[in-house]
Design a protein around this nucleic acid. Structure first.
Lengths: 232, 232
DNA sequence: CAAAAAGATTAATGAAAGATTAAGACGGGT
DNA sequence: ACCCGTCTTAATCTTTCATTAATCTTTTTG
C-alpha cells in the first residue's frame, strides 16, 4: 500500500496552465488528477485519497478560497496550497488563514513548484494508521475481532471476514462517525457505487446481530457514513 | 494555540532588518533569539532548543546555505527557512534541496512571514486533539461538528449536513457578523436568489434548535447577514 | 405613512440515499 | 463436479433532506 506515487489533486480552470502542470508533474513522478472547478474537486476528494491539493484561487463558480472553506466544513483533511496571480497581501494572508501550507504567485516556475511540493510532503505527519485493538466491548456484547466472534450473554455467533472488518472499524470509533469513504477504502480499496451497496447489506447484517441490546445502534448520517452508537 | 511560546532563531547579519524582524516577531508572541552569523547560530543551537530557524542566505563568513549544510552534518534537526534577496531560480532550488521548509524573497512582508511561520508550525506540530475546529461551546449548548450533534443538557439532536455547515460558520464567528455573501459562497459556492432563500430556511431551523437557551440568538443585520449572539 | 425590499415561517415536493430481502456468482474443500 | 458458506448484484421499498413555493412579517426608504 505504501511506497506508492504521491497523489496530487490539481484544481485549475485554465486549460493551458492545467495541461502544462499536470503533464510536468506527471513527468516528475506524481500521480496527478486534474479537475477544472471546485465542485469536481469535492467530488474527486470524496472518491479517492490524495496527499496534497493544488488550488487555483481565481476560478469561475467556486473560487479557491471558497473551496478551501468547503473542505474545512466537510472535514476533508487534505493539505493544500494556493496558486494565484493575486499577490495582494490581503489575499496571501487570507490564503494562509484558511490553512494553506503554501501560497505561490504566478507566473509559476514548475521546478520551484516541485521543490515546494517535496518540502511540504517531507514535513507532513504521516496519517494515523488505524492500529486498533482486536477486542471490544459493545454495550452488553463482547466482540473478539481476532477470532471473529460476537458474544452475547455467553452465547456467540461467528462473523464472516467482511462483517468482522466492518465491525472493527465501527467499534474502534464508537460513537464517532465513520465515513463511507473511509470504510470503503479500508474494506475494498475503492469507493464506488457497487461497494457502497454492498456496505449497506453488511450494515443490515450487523444491525441484525446487534439488536438484542437496544442500547446499541448503528446509526446513519445521511450522505456521510455510519456511527456505532452505544448509550450509557 | 500552544501554551508556551514558539522559539525562533533568527540568523541575520544586517542590523536594520534583524532588529526590525526580531522586534516584530517578538511582538507577535514569538520568543526570538537573534544572532548575526552562522558560527553564533551553531553555538546557540547547541545551547538551547528552537522550533524554527530563519536564515538569511547572504552573510559574511558563513552564508545561509553553508549553515544549513553544517546543521545537516551536525544532525541538528531543526526546521529552517531562507530569507534572501537572491531570487535566482537556482538558489531557490538549492535552498529546498538543502531541506528548507520555505524560501522567502526580499523584500520581506512581515505579516506574510508570520503567516508562513504559522503554516509551517501547524504542519510540524502534530494536530492538537483530533477535533480541532469542529467542537464548539455555544452558551449552554455543545456542538460537535464532526458528528453533527447539538448537545443540550445531556440530550442531543442530530443535525443535517447543511444545518451543520451553517452552524459551524456561525459558531466559528461567534458574536461576529457572517455576511450573506460569505455564507452562501462557503455553503453553496454560489450567491444567487434561491440559495439565499434556502439560507433563510436553515436559519429558521437553527433558531428553533437553539431556543432552549435564551442567551443564544441568531440575529439578522438587515441586508448584511447573520450573527450568532451569545450573551454574558 | 405607504410601497418595496428583505426576512421569517411553514409546508410541499422530489430526487437521492438508505434499508431490506432475495437471487446470482464465486471459490475453497471434499 | 458439487456443496456450502460468503460476497456481490439486483430489485424494491422506505426515509431523508435540500430545495422550492407560498404566505406572512419586519425593516428601510423616500
Amino acid at each position: 500500500m505504501k511506497a506508492n506515487k504521491v497523489r496530487l489533486l490539481l484544481v485549475e480552470d485554465e486549460d493551458s496552465l492545467g495541461y502544462l502542470l499536470s503533464e510536468y508533474l506527471g513527468m516528475k513522478g506524481f500521480k496527478v488528477t486534474w479537475v477544472k472547478d471546485g465542485e469536481e474537486a469535492l467530488t474527486e476528494m470524496g472518491k479517492s485519497i490524495f496527499d496534497l491539493a493544488i488550488l487555483d484561487v481565481m476560478m469561475p463558480k467556486m473560487d479557491g478560497f471558497a473551496l478551501a472553506e468547503r473542505m474545512r466544513l466537510n472535514t476533508v483533511d487534505l493539505p493544500f496550497l494556493f496558486l494565484t496571480a493575486r499577490s495582494l497581501k490581503v489575499d496571501v494572508l487570507k490564503g494562509f488563514s484558511l490553512g494553506a501550507v503554501d501560497y505561490l504567485k504566478k507566473p509559476i516556475d514548475e521546478e520551484e513548484l516541485v521543490a515546494r511540493i517535496h518540502a511540504i510532503l517531507s514535513r507532513l505527519v504521516p496519517k494515523d494508521s488505524q492500529e486498533s485493538g482486536t477486542y471490544f466491548k459493545i454495550g452488553q456484547y463482547e466482540f473478539d475481532g481476532k477470532n471473529q466472534k460476537l458474544i452475547f450473554k455467553g452465547d456467540f455467533r461467528t462473523l464472516t471476514t467482511r462483517e468482522t472488518e466492518l465491525l472493527k472499524i465501527l467499534a474502534s470509533n464508537e460513537n464517532n462517525l465513520c465515513t463511507h469513504k473511509d470504510i470503503l477504502l479500508q474494506l475494498w480499496g475503492v469507493n464506488d457505487y457497487f461497494n457502497r451497496k454492498s456496505l449497506n447489506v453488511f450494515i443490515t447484517r450487523l444491525r441484525n446481530y446487534l439488536k438484542a441490546d437496544n442500547n446499541v445502534k448503528i446509526e446513519n448520517l445521511h450522505g456521510k457514513g455510519f456511527i456505532l452508537r452505544v448509550k450509557e
